[in-house]
Design a binder for these strands. Structure first.
Lengths: 260, 260
DNA sequence: TCCGTCGTCC
DNA sequence: GGACGACGGA
């Protein structure tokens, strides 16, 4: 039997919202340590890795390891029915082919329970090498979302150039070209507004902005996003999930064209 | 001549919004007692009955009984032009084939008048038996709306089970199955948030959720909805219209399939 | 509150 | 297959 209870069910809903555009169905790996998920998007371009540690749940019980094939599309629909401050319990009974999501309103007067059929998915476990990145940019996730949205208006690709003083996002296309530069924050009024750069080596990498915009669906999970980069290595775009884990998105850089 | 004046014209607009999806045109019966309307939806599945008593109007005059065939679609369009706090006057002159809607702004500085052609409709007067229901559930109309919308995501039908302690709405379909249970309120902080159940006999009835969602278009009329049910009897779903009348929707339960 | 997408009806 | 209306998201 598997049962995990989260007082703030909305966190889980945000996780699903953060994943579902990139990955419509995926296999969840449940063990005593927590829940993990790894998947590539349907065109096998981007990769996502989710970790939710068991100690982040209010209660957590996992008698044996389980692989659960789940439609994130359906799960998202069910989670939309959750009240704003509901407590969420996720349960899989032994020998059941369904996952049960229970939601309790804070005043205990409302109780909803939804059952989703589990799916048989070919689960590709993906080895993600631990990389020592040349550069890690930390910035407000809302700012990153806005920049990616804006760059998408200009073109399909965004080039991220990072030096020790700042980071520049640039795009060009039919409408024109443009770039936005953020300097590393000096006075950190609010931690969450800070832009900080850890840099061993300057980088300049180009990415398909469409995928970055999908990654940004996870932005409501965290005030800050971490962008870790090295030349010729996939970008890692990380959002923390409270203090219980993270979502990490990976995207290989485009090979630079002659004209860039 | 017929003339009825309503200081709060928005109430009348809400009545029309509450009806127009189910019934696009209908015959209004005007008499000295007030206005009534009865109609079935186009597929003859659901029935609606409207009562607006004459004493609920600011002024009311009806020299002789009249049957007015009206396009609710057109009337809705006209009422959308009404200002938020306008006073509405409905008038039918003798020997006229039109109904005139006059709207005055509160400051008397704006005055609009629209004329709608009356229609010749075969008016079926429907006998609605007075039923002594086994169970009456009273709940916030917003909550009922949300539940019906959610249940529609899961499937075409919703099963309502009511016992003396609470009421449960359930649905099943492709995405999965689910249910939501409301307990009878114990401490009534706000009257309008209360869930209360008068029960002589427990009921479990299944309805086409599509129609319930149409009924919910009338929810803005009232904070509370009354669901009156008996086995093998049409549901009555009632919204009060201020203290001047009500809209009552009727819907026959589905015959239970073997699998339920 | 307005715009875009999806579903239903003609 | 096209048009209209409803619903959900930005």
């Amino acid at each position: 039997m598997f049962e995990a209870r989260l007082a703030q069910g909305s966190i889980f809903a945000k996780v699903i919202e953060g994943l579902r555009e990139l990955v419509t169905e995926a296999t969840w790996e449940c063990s005593g340590n927590g829940i993990t998920l790894q998947a590539m998007d349907s065109s096998h371009v981007a990769l996502v890795s989710l970790v939710l540690r068991s100690d982040g749940f209010e209660t957590y019980r996992c008698d044996r390891n389980m692989s659960l094939g789940i439609s994130l599309t359906s799960m998202s629909k069910v989670l939309k029915m959750m009240g704003k401050d509901d407590t969420l319990t996720i349960r899989v009974n032994d020998d059941s082919d369904a996952i049960v999501l229970s939601m309790e309103s804070q005043n205990q007067e409302e109780f909803a329970e939804y059952e989703l059929r589990l799916m048989d998915l070919d689960s590709e476990h993906l080895g993600i090498p631990d990389t020592d990145y040349s550069c890690v940019v930390k910035m407000p996730s809302t700012k990153f979302s806005r920049i990616c949205r804006d760059m998408a208006i200009l073109g399909d690709s965004v080039t991220i150039c990072s030096t020790k003083d700042g980071v520049k996002f640039g795009a060009k296309g039919d409408v024109g070209q443009g770039s936005i530069r953020l300097n590393q924050s000096t006075n950190v009024d609010k931690e969450e507004d800070a832009v900080s750069i850890e840099l061993r080596e300057a980088v300049a990498l180009t990415f398909a902005v469409r995928y970055l915009n999908m990654f940004c669906k996870a932005a409501p999970l965290s005030n800050q996003v971490n962008l870790s980069m090295s030349e010729d290595t996939p970008l890692m775009c990380e959002f923390k999930v409270g203090d219980m884990g993270h979502i990490r998105f990976y995207l290989a850089p485009k090979i630079e064209d002659a004209e860039n």
